[in-house]
Design a protein around this nucleic acid. Sequence first.
DNA 1: TTTATAGGAATGAATATTCATTCCGCTTTT
DNA 2: AAAAGCGGAATGAATATTCATTCCTATAAA
Lengths: 191, 191
Amino acid sequence: MPTSTTKREDILDSALTLFAERGFDATTIPMIATDAKVGAGTIYRYFANKEVLVNTLFQHYVTLFKEALEKNYPEEAGIREQFHHLFQGMIRFTNEHDHALYFIKTHTSAYFLDASSREQFGHLLMIFENFFEAGKQHGHIRELPSKALIAIIFGGFLQLYQLIRVGELEASAELLAGVEESCWDAVRHHS
Amino acid sequence: MPTSTTKREDILDSALTLFAERGFDATTIPMIATDAKVGAGTIYRYFANKEVLVNTLFQHYVTLFKEALEKNYPEEAGIREQFHHLFQGMIRFTNEHDHALYFIKTHTSAYFLDASSREQFGHLLMIFENFFEAGKQHGHIRELPSKALIAIIFGGFLQLYQLIRVGELEASAELLAGVEESCWDAVRHHS
DNA sequence: TTTATAGGAATGAATATTCATTCCGCTTTT
DNA sequence: AAAAGCGGAATGAATATTCATTCCTATAAA
């Protein structure tokens, strides 16, 4: 077998957790190696260097997230249901990939992201941007720049999930439903 | 003049900017020294080490922020006005101390914060917690854990301000008023 | 008023430490 | 037995921290 894919994924998993918890600069390669139960040198068999590793990780999860949001998107449904779909997508994605969204968020404007990573992230934002623009057109969404609306939703959601991850809140269905309602009220148009 | 207090403050100012822009780990002491126009060794005359420096900075601005929120707090006013006061406090503080809130936010759960820093930050949260608890008691605020409400407001606000700092949005009075309304709708009780 | 001097402040080159990356011998697979 | 995959010690570069030296400035002697 040419290099079992397992190790590569162990490395990516460990890197995701550590980058999310401590940040890129505070995470050392030996740390990742230890956590992944792998020699430090092995990491370099799979990734040319630390920056390639972080960009690979970033693009991988941005893509996954984008797909999660786009899958089964209810094009024809009402706006509230579309919002529900997006919000549920965020929740499901966060549950499936523990640290991924937080990692994405905290590294979105990092100095070491390459052009491709930035581009991928742009695509991701576009999903939300399209949603909000269409919603504003129909008078369903508050008249604020889409970028601002995205920031409010994303910022709030991720800050909340940080609390959950740290254990200060429990992710009950009730809490999540309440938060979705809160976020919806933040962006919808009120008459 | 024996050691003008200026140098110490030059150092703190430079550190604030650099920590906020690049993060603690990506900021080197020589960088701070250069920016502050000071010898690298001079920093160690004022701060025992890099961690003491960052904790000093953190506590300083948390305290300032807390004071800004508490000053002229309208105890007797209605809840919407109290919310306005808090929100305005956030805006004013951010305008007066450019990078301070962002620095606080991005370093709140950092591994190098000492007990005192964490405690100070707890006091800060208490202001919001008290506000939300009282509001829920009177049925004015959404029935969600205060921690969650705080996360939504803070997360959203700071994410937004990051866009402003980066220049993607302009901090017009109109935008800020809209965002305040959005945040208020996120936390208030809807009948 | 001018000059000398003590002592705190500031400096930045030197040192110690940490970290990304490399390299080589050992292990496993074929 | 050869080849491929691994581990982890070794290397070199970057960084935090130290320290011997210089620079001020305030006071005091001349």
